[in-house]
């Protein structure tokens, strides 16, 4: 199973959350709401491309509007293997973060 990077994970989660409405602008805003950081379109499309190549998302051309200067939207949709990837990532993460909340944060590395 291919590992997801943190950024890919964010994008993939966002695509899943947005369901049919997952296209560039929407994904970018969604990510901004969660992380409070703006992801430039260049980076966003780079990540979406990687996810497409890994077959974690499908893409499909949508309608065009006047405010887009006549250019069509590309809608992304998560695939079954994408969901698998998220699941395994979640599993890994939860294992890795187990007991994080109960740890004494000042004990481990302070010395």
């Amino acid at each position: 199973m291919t590992q997801l990077t943190k950024a890919e994970e964010m994008v993939l989660l966002s695509v899943m959350r947005l369901k049919e409405q997952a296209y560039g602008v929407a994904i970018k805003q969604d990510i901004k709401e969660i992380t409070d950081k703006s992801l430039p379109y260049g980076t966003l499309y780079f990540l979406l491309d990687k996810l497409t190549v890994k077959l974690f998302v499908d893409k499909e051309l949508g309608e065009s509007t006047a405010e887009r200067g006549g250019r069509r939207k590309t809608f992304y949709q998560i695939t079954a293997s994408g969901i698998d990837a998220l699941k395994s990532a979640f599993d890994q993460q939860s294992r890795a973060w187990t007991n994080f909340a109960s740890m004494d944060l000042h004990e481990g590395f302070g010395k």
């Binding site: 560039g24 499309y45 887009r68």
Partner: peptide
């Protein structure tokens, strides 16, 4: 400079947000 296969949607997205 935009990657050719994405450039149309990408520019479209930017137009939308810039508007």
């Amino acid at each position: 400079l935009a990657v050719k296969r994405n450039s149309l949607s990408l520019i479209g997205d930017m137009y939308e947000e810039y508007a």
